[in-house]
Amino acid sequence: MRGRVLIIAGSDSGGGAGVQADIKTVTMLGGYAASAITAITVQDTLGVHAVQAISPHMIADQIRVVLRDIGADAIKTGMMGAVETIMAVADVLREEAPQIPLVLDPVMVAKGGASLLAPDAVACLKQHLLPLAYLVTPNAPELAALTDLPVETTGMMEKAARTLCAELLPNKMAVLAKGGHLDGVELVDLLVQAETVTQFSASRIESRHTHGTGCTLASAIATGLAQGLNLKDAVRRAHAYVHKAIATAPGFGKGHGPLNHGHPLD
């Protein structure tokens, strides 16, 4: 076991996304996963049926005690939900983990369409949490919301990602713009770092079993960073892990089903 990853995210009762997917991913890639729960969702493959937020004080305390005792080599954030949660997380990370690389997945909408980030929280996320990130992993709709730019093609996605790097993130930050929502038989993600852009491509797998892909990818990258991989290698390994997890999905549920996080065991 190598690489400690602290996951700050919501719980998915269906097990396909959120903290459950994160812990499975970190474990399957050989890391150690700790967690701070931001919200409890009543969720299955058909959607999010209810959300109960955890108090900001409790969230901050979860983060603080884990960092002070077990420590972390990387941190991954997912569902924040509200302004109060974002502020609590940002404050404790500035205090306790200023040098630990943060992979920020700006979770805004669930796979089934339910909103997971309050409208007033988007500006708060941009102002207080994004500047702390080492890597931000928005999909196309999230990237459009963060930049107020249209993202309908790979070229538009690159422009928006460059804008996010330039306007919101310090020089050391990077954006992994995910193209899964765009049309085409080839899925293209773009890693934008300062002046460089690296393309990661894969054949699109036509499947409804893609619940938790964003959570899984971000956690896989965080695990790679925690284990000492450079960013490009961490993204490359994470892509391979997620691609096979989709290809071998177990087919559970009546809606957007979960991935096969355990495929390394096979």
Results as ranks from 00 to 15, higher is better:
S207D: 09
V103H: 01
Q227S: 10
Q193Y: 08
A17E: 04
R204T: 06
V19M: 09
A145V: 07
V65D: 11
H211G: 01
S203L: 13
A222R: 04
S207A: 06
I86L: 13
H256A: 06
L125Y: 12
G10M: 10
G179K: 08
T25C: 09
K178W: 08
G71E: 09
L46S: 13
L116W: 08
D266G: 10
K232R: 13
P258L: 02
R162H: 03
L259Q: 08
G113A: 05
D91G: 05
I54W: 09
H211L: 02
A90C: 05
P141Q: 07
D61T: 14
G3T: 04
M58L: 15
T248C: 11
D148L: 10
L190S: 11
E142R: 04
E186L: 12
P131A: 01
A21N: 05
I63A: 09
L116D: 06
G184M: 01
A249K: 04
L29C: 05
T41M: 03
D61N: 14
H261V: 09
T77P: 03
D73F: 01
D22C: 12
D12C: 10
G228T: 07
T45N: 03
H243Q: 14
G262D: 11
S201Q: 14
P119S: 12
L93S: 02
L6T: 07
A34L: 12
T216Y: 00
A17I: 06
G228F: 06
E152Y: 13
T198K: 14
L191C: 04
V26T: 12
G31W: 04
I205T: 14
K111W: 10
R68W: 08
F200L: 10
A74W: 00
P131H: 02
A240G: 05
K172E: 15
C124M: 15
L168Q: 13
H211V: 01
G71R: 04
T163G: 05
L146A: 07
L231T: 05
L6M: 08
L129R: 02
I246Y: 13
K172N: 14
L117H: 03
A222C: 09
K24A: 06
L93T: 00
M79D: 00
L225A: 07
A160E: 02
R94G: 00
A50D: 15
L46A: 14
A177Q: 05
L125K: 06
D148C: 11
F252L: 14
G212A: 06
E142G: 03
G31P: 09
A161P: 07
V65N: 09
